[in-house]
Design a binder for these strands. Structure first.
Lengths: 124, 124
DNA sequence: TGAACACATGAGCAACTATTCATATGTTCG
DNA sequence: CGAACATATGAATAGTTGCTCATGTGTTCA
């Protein structure tokens, strides 16, 4: 018994639109997909990383160049580049002592553009 | 004198590709725009908010419904909805005691789709 | 081989954030 | 009005994160 309680669990109010909830639930992607999606956007949710990605969209660059461009430290950039590489958004190649980074994904600019649309549209 | 040092500032290595840096710098949007862009993506960078937005893309819903659907508390949802409203991604209307939330921006689904492209493409 | 340089990385810390808990606000209805 | 209910919100907290500092790794060149 108390099956309803099992379903509702942590919602502390009466179910109002059970039909809506069920319908929406059926159309939702699996939990894991939405989690991965949030993880991806988390990568874009830091201005240092956004600036790095934007810079790399303009040109392949080495770590030192990026640090100089963004006026930050080599270490900070390197840490973020590792993060971006894990997210498969950048790739790199070594040429002597220098390591050149570039974008690994052609969606980056498109994602930026969608975001800019939102920012510019409502004047905020 | 020491003009170069003023430009380089925090970069602890020798400038290798000054021409590249200057060229990229010229094509970068203003710092503030990139900051706002990161702030926007930060909103998408949490799975609770992603799930709320996805749900609202399917249907207008009240706070209680969303909490039940996501199996979380009314309070947590309410806090996130306020955040989403500040980001101008959702809007609401009151009908008696109930407050219905819906998407305020038609880019949300497009941004999600771009993100999904990235996730699904490289098998990760 | 060893100094110099570009880059990577681990530890530590300060700042931020998402949730919980308690309580306040706003609405309906008897 | 006052009880009941849906929602909002402030404070506190546990977890996360981005940077710094120190140091390690990999490469070149004399």
């Amino acid at each position: 018994m108390k099956k309803k309680a099992d379903v509702i669990e942590r919602c502390d109010c009466v179910m109002i639109h059970e039909d809506t909830i069920e319908r929406v639930r059926k159309n939702m992607p699996p939990e894991e997909t939405l989690y991965d999606l949030a993880e991806l956007f988390k990568v874009f949710g830091d201005s240092t990383r956004v600036r790095i990605l934007w810079a790399l969209d303009e040109s392949e660059m080495c770590v030192c160049d990026i640090a100089a461009l963004l006026n930050t430290t080599q270490s900070a950039v390197s840490h973020q580049l590792r993060y971006l590489k894990q997210a498969k958004l950048v790739k790199n190649r070594r040429e002597g002592k220098t390591v050149y980074y570039s974008l690994a994904d052609e969606h980056v600019k498109q994602i930026f553009d969608q975001g800019l649309d939102h920012i510019l549209e409502d004047g905020k």
